[in-house]
Simulated scan of single mutants.
Amino acid sequence: MRFILKSAFWLVAAFLVIRPGVDLPAAAGSVTAQAMAAGQSAIVAQIEKTECTTLECVGGKALLSAAVKSTAQPQAVAPMQISSTVETAPVPRPRPAWLG
């Protein structure tokens, strides 16, 4: 009986993790985007919280805020399996005519 309960539990857990109709790369990408956005907003909030009295400090804050906002955008990269290697793959030499 215990074996059947443990098996049923793990089957249900596996079904919840790998259920039909779920695009795991897209879900992972959305979680990554949310984490990056939360980190970006936390960093910008800490930069904006700093009190400045000089022009150098104000310029530095603006520069840091712009740098964080521009570098936090994720770049879309094609996976290795999808990327084409047609241009970089070596092409074999043609077969000699005397071989037929």
Rank of each mutant, 00 (worst) to 15 (best):
I43L: 11
S84V: 06
V86L: 14
L63C: 03
Q40E: 14
L64W: 02
I4N: 12
A89M: 11
I43M: 09
V86Q: 08
A72E: 05
R2S: 13
L24S: 02
Q46S: 11
G60Q: 06
Q34I: 10
R93F: 03
S30T: 04
A45H: 09
L64Q: 05
L63Q: 07
A66T: 05
E48N: 13
S30C: 01
A26S: 14
A78H: 09
A8D: 07
C57I: 06
E51W: 04
S30I: 00
T54L: 06
S30Q: 15
P94F: 04
A8P: 00
A37I: 08
P74D: 06
T50H: 09
K6R: 10
P79G: 07
Q46H: 04
A38S: 14
I4Y: 13
L24T: 10
T88Y: 15
K6N: 11
E51M: 03
T32Y: 15
M80A: 11
P96T: 00
D23C: 01
V17T: 10
A66V: 01
F15E: 05
A45D: 13
W10E: 03
S70E: 13
V58P: 01
C57L: 13
L63T: 07
P94E: 02
R2Y: 08
L64R: 02
A13T: 05
M80Y: 08
A42N: 10
P94G: 03
A33W: 02
L24G: 05
V58T: 12
A76F: 14
L64M: 10
A35Y: 06
A35G: 04
A67Q: 08
G60H: 02
C52L: 02
R95E: 08
T88R: 14
V91M: 04
V17W: 08
A67D: 07
F9C: 04
T85G: 12
E87G: 09
G21L: 03
A89N: 08
A72Q: 00
P20F: 02
V31I: 12
V22W: 10
L63Y: 05
R93W: 03
F9I: 09
P79L: 09
V91W: 05
V86G: 04
M80W: 09
S7I: 03
Q73G: 04
A13F: 15
T88V: 15
G59P: 00
C57T: 09
G100L: 07
I43H: 00
A27D: 11
D23P: 01
F9D: 03
G21Q: 04
M1P: 09
V68E: 00
V17D: 01
Q34A: 15
L5T: 06
P79H: 06
A67F: 10
